[in-house]
C-alpha cells in the first residue's frame, strides 16, 4: 500500500504540497485530478525522488518502507515507476541499450540474474508489439525524434519491462490522439494486477474512460479536497475546476 501522510513539499522555497494525505492499496487504481498548478506533477516527482523537491513535513511509505530515504534509483528498485509527462530525449543513448541497462540494474537490485541477449530481445519484442511500437523506433536513440504519442508508448513499454509495483502516470494522456490514447490505455490496463498499485494523474476525465479508476481524488492548492468513485471524474468533466481555484477557460 502507498501511504502518504501530511505531505508538505517546497520547490525553490515555494510551498506546493500543503498537507496531502492519501492511500492507494495494492491492486487499486487511483486517479488524481485537479486544476493546473494544484501540485499534481509535484506529487509525481516527489514520489520518484527528484532533487529540488524538498519535503518539509510528512511521510511517504510504500509497503511500509519509508521511500523518502531512498535515491531515485533505489526507489525504482523498490518498485516505484514514474511515467513522465515529458519524457526526455537522450541523443547518443540507443533505446535498446538503455532498456537493457535499466532492466538489468533493477533485476540486479532485486537479486535476479541479468537477462541474456536472446531472452531480452524476445521480451522487448513481445512487449513492444502489444503497444504497437515499430521495431524501427527501438533502433533510434532514446526518444529522439519521437512524436508525443511515441514517447508515451515508450514510457508504457518501460513500465511493462521493469514490472514495477507502484506505477505513477503523470498526464500520460497529454499530447495523445484518440488512437494512441486507446493503445496506451490498453497497455496500462494489461498491467493492472492485484500486486500492483497505480496512481493516474490527469487533468481530463477522458483518460479515465479507458483506465477506469477505483477511486478519484481532487487535488487543489496542495491538498486532497475531495475523494469519490469514478463518477466524480464525470462530474468534474461537466462542472470544471472553477470551484477548486481554476478560472473557467
Amino acid at each position: 500500500m502507498l501511504k502518504i501522510e501530511n505531505l508538505h513539499v517546497e520547490v525553490d522555497g515555494q510551498k506546493i504540497l500543503d498537507g496531502l494525505d492519501m492511500e492507494v492499496p495494492k491492486g487499486e487504481v487511483h486517479a488524481i485530478m485537479g486544476p493546473n498548478g494544484s501540485g499534481k506533477s509535484t506529487l509525481a516527482y516527489v514520489l520518484a525522488g527528484k532533487e529540488d523537491y524538498v519535503v518539509t513535513e510528512g511521510s511517504i511509505t510504500w509497503n511500509g518502507d519509508d521511500i523518502l530515504e531512498l535515491s531515485p534509483d533505489e526507489r525504482a528498485a523498490a518498485g516505484v515507476f514514474l511515467a513522465f509527462q515529458y519524457p526526455v530525449e537522450i541523443p547518443g543513448v540507443a533505446t535498446m541499450t538503455f532498456l537493457r541497462t535499466a532492466l538489468n540494474a533493477i533485476r540486479k537490485a532485486r537479486g535476479q540474474d541479468e537477462l541474456n541477449t536472446p531472452d531480452f530481445m524476445r521480451l522487448v519484442r513481445e512487449r513492444a508489439e502489444a503497444l504497437k511500437i515499430e521495431p524501427d523506433m527501438l533502433k533510434r536513440p532514446l526518444n529522439v525524434g519521437f512524436s508525443g504519442g511515441e514517447k508515451k508508448r515508450q514510457e508504457v513499454l518501460q513500465m511493462a519491462l521493469l514490472e514495477p509495483s507502484l506505477c505513477v502516470l503523470d498526464e500520460t494522456d497529454s499530447g495523445l490522439d484518440i488512437d494512441a490514447l486507446r493503445i496506451v490505455s490498453e497497455g496500462v490496463n494489461a498491467l493492472r494486477s492485484p500486486d500492483r498499485a497505480m496512481l493516474v494523474i490527469t487533468h481530463y476525465q477522458r483518460l479515465l474512460s479507458y483506465i477506469v479508476p477505483d477511486r478519484v481524488h481532487v487535488l487543489s492548492a496542495g491538498k486532497i479536497v475531495r475523494s469519490g468513485d469514478k463518477e466524480l471524474a464525470l462530474e468534474l468533466e461537466n462542472s470544471g475546476y472553477a470551484e477548486y481555484g481554476e478560472a473557467a477557460a
Partner: peptide, 20 residues
C-alpha cells in the same frame, strides 16, 4: 534523473550521459 528513475545508479547514469 530520468535514467536514475529507471533504476540506473548515479555513477552509471553519469557515465552513460558522458559517453552519449
Amino acid at each position: 534523473f530520468y535514467l536514475r528513475a529507471r533504476g540506473i545508479g548515479e555513477l552509471e547514469a553519469r557515465s552513460i550521459l558522458i559517453q552519449a
